[in-house]
């Protein structure tokens, strides 16, 4: 199982981002290997449709779960199509902290949109 978390920097001690599609990095936790890796989010500079593009990047990496601050309607639709589950974290935490919250089942799953997308 792979979990991606939108974050401001490229490691597990970084602060989480307050944006999903235009976050700087995704930190990826591999629950089988118990390891952290990260990727730079190339969708962030997209002129339009960053939400869908970011999800495609994660889908292509075989991510199963994303932890996010909020999601636009397009990102949510795309996550569902890629069969990736999404959970919402509170702001101002670190990547490691929100991951613990997830395993403690303290993060709500996102099923309807919490924010609207931009063009």
């Amino acid at each position: 199982m792979k979990i991606a978390i939108s974050s401001l920097e490229n490691n597990e001690n970084s602060k989480v981002s307050d944006r999903f599609a235009r976050t700087e990095y995704f930190v990826i936790y591999d629950h089988e290997a118990l390891s952290f890796t990260s990727i730079e989010n190339t969708a962030k500079s997209a002129g339009s449709g960053a939400g869908g593009k970011a999800v495609k990047i994660l889908g292509d990496l075989g991510i199963d779960i994303v932890l996010v601050p909020e999601l636009g309607p397009k990102a949510l639709e795309a996550l569902e199509a890629f069969e990736i589950k999404s959970y919402q974290y509170p702001r101002e935490k670190t990547v490691r902290e929100v991951l613990y919250l997830y395993f403690e089942k303290k993060l709500p799953e996102l099923l309807i949109s919490t924010s609207k997308g931009r063009h």
């Binding site: 960053a50 795309a78 199509a81 890629f82 063009h119």
Partner: peptide, 23 residues
């Protein structure tokens, strides 16, 4: 299609292709 589209309006997912009409 997704690689070509400059506007991220079409994205193939697992079992369907997403089209964002407004993009």
């Amino acid at each position: 299609c997704s690689d070509f589209c400059n506007f991220n309006a079409i994205i193939p997912a697992k079992k369907k292709v997403l089209v964002f009409q407004d993009l």
